[in-house]
Design a protein around this nucleic acid. Structure first.
Lengths: 290, 290
DNA sequence: ACAAAAGTGTTGGGAGTACACCCATGT
DNA sequence: ACATGGGTGTACTCCCAACACTTTTGT
């Protein structure tokens, strides 16, 4: 079996009290062997721990999430968030990074370990943890959801299988139809993934307000207009191009000129920028109220 | 944020593939019994899942956290955050609520289920999840930390034992000595609890900026001055009493007059208020920069 | 010439800061 | 009378929303 009773406990192991905090033991019986390895699977409720990923990008002026087709029951054939088990010797963030690379081939900027080249690669951060006892009908699974923000990518690759993964507009996945209140998305996501996705989207929407994270949706070099269209897609609003321009170029450290210009959007050539070093925006970008 | 909406999953279980998402199985061998119970402990890495609590309050003009003395090794005799195992049939939020009641006797306002009587009881929300493989030397433990904000309480009761639990100023626990940079707190917290506490404190500090959560630190009825002293203690700054008064009384839904007055702070009698229905403050309270 | 997108200037209002000043109590 | 904290008024500043206007390309 792959789990080689890892966790080498330094020194003392004579006391295998499971609850670290107050010396309470989960198992009611008090008859377990004190000479056993550093954990006793029967002494605590066994949980499986997974990471699920909310990977967001902006494609064709819409906020999209990466979903994969489930090949197994339950929810066979339904769309779900990508994810997988946390390995025995692996930190939660490492598991999320591994899954993200497996799923998208992205290189990852960890939130806590800023990469040398700002503006490229994806942003990854922990989102929240979901542990309802009934969220997976087969067993007790606690899922540590992570949020990833990625620039527009060519095409998802999920184990080489093309039609088992796709970028889907979150509006379509969540049924947040804006105008007329639709009851349900055409095909709801598996498990509690709709809720996880909604939480991730809300986090992204609020976080680009006071941080420079919106640049994670952009290619390494981008124009102010492209950045504005990111904000518009994520928030689902339209912004005044003039005020937006003044705001982002006037915030020190947000954008640094990359030198060239481009006309890929048509019209007058636009300056190219890279993401600057600043992570926190002060004052923040304000989402229009109405 | 993490609402406990139980998504009811249809109950088929004939396939015991462990990785829900992509049909990957953790166990390399492919010889497990398809007729077995809904989980196979050897097919996924066994984790213990706990909840740890960052319980904050304001006492004598200082932000304090609840810590308990560890009676077992490792870290025997050191202070730690209260916490405990998540039970087999228990949601994460329920486990945190249970631990909080056991530890403090508080009744709990769940963030997502606003209680009928605003302003009383504690606030509880999920904070983050910590799963470094080495965070507990005995075994693999993933801890879902929660943040609780409580009004000043008489005295902590930890299993009846008085001197095994206390409210400690976070400044003392974290060694954030303001003026002169001290190296380490006198006695660092057990495990990675210093980091968890720091994250919880930072969350509280930023959250009272844009939400009405500061009232969770106050008794059911309180004065504007008392609320101001909460902000001052949590942020470690001093605020202009005049502008603060105008700001909080002018934000609709933040405070509602409770009718009476009090002179418990000396000076001119102050109006008593209750927390209003508003949860989000717009515009937010601003933390002074310097 | 015209459309389209990039940028700049200007103006009015809302909210924050700083601080002078008044109010109601206890001692 | 005086100290203490509660509460109001006012002037100044900064930022933002709105919008008129100019610039530079493609067709």
């Amino acid at each position: 079996m792959p789990l080689d009773t890892a966790r080498e406990a330094p020194g003392e192991r004579e006391e295998v009290v499971v609850d670290a905090r107050e010396g309470r033991v989960y198992r009611q019986e008090d008859d377990y062997d004190h000479g056993m390895p550093p954990y006793d699977p029967s002494a605590f409720p066994p949980f499986a721990v997974t990471v699920d990923l909310v990977v967001l990008t902006v494609r064709r002026h819409a906020l999209c999430a990466l979903v994969v087709r489930r090949g197994e029951s339950p929810f066979k054939g339904r769309w779900a968030l990508p994810g997988g088990f946390v390995r025995d010797d692996e930190d939660l963030g490492a598991a999320a990074r591994r899954e993200l690379v497996e799923e998208t081939g992205l290189c990852v900027h960890d939130q806590d370990a800023p990469a040398p080249m700002p503006g490229n690669g994806a942003h990854l951060e922990q989102l929240a943890t979901y542990g309802d006892p009934k969220r997976d009908p087969r067993m007790r699974v606690v899922s540590v959801a992570h949020l990833a923000l990625a620039p527009d990518l060519p095409a998802p690759r999920a184990g080489g299988d093309a039609n088992s993964a796709r970028w889907a507009p979150v509006e379509e996945l969540l049924g947040e139809d804006g105008s007329v209140e639709r009851e349900e998305p055409a095909e709801p996501l598996a498990f509690d993934h709709a809720r996880i996705l909604a939480d991730g989207v809300e986090r992204a929407r609020s976080k680009i307000e006071y941080s420079s994270l919106a640049t994670a949706f952009c290619p390494p070099e981008f124009t102010v207009g492209e950045l504005r269209r990111v904000y518009e897609a994520v928030w689902g609003v339209s912004l005044d191009p003039r005020n937006f321009h003044r705001k982002v170029t006037g915030t020190p450290g947000f954008l640094v000129p990359a030198g060239g210009t481009t006309t890929r959007q048509g019209g007058r050539p636009a300056q190219l920028f890279r993401a600057g070093g600043a992570t926190l925006l002060n004052p923040p970008m304000l989402r229009p109220e109405v």
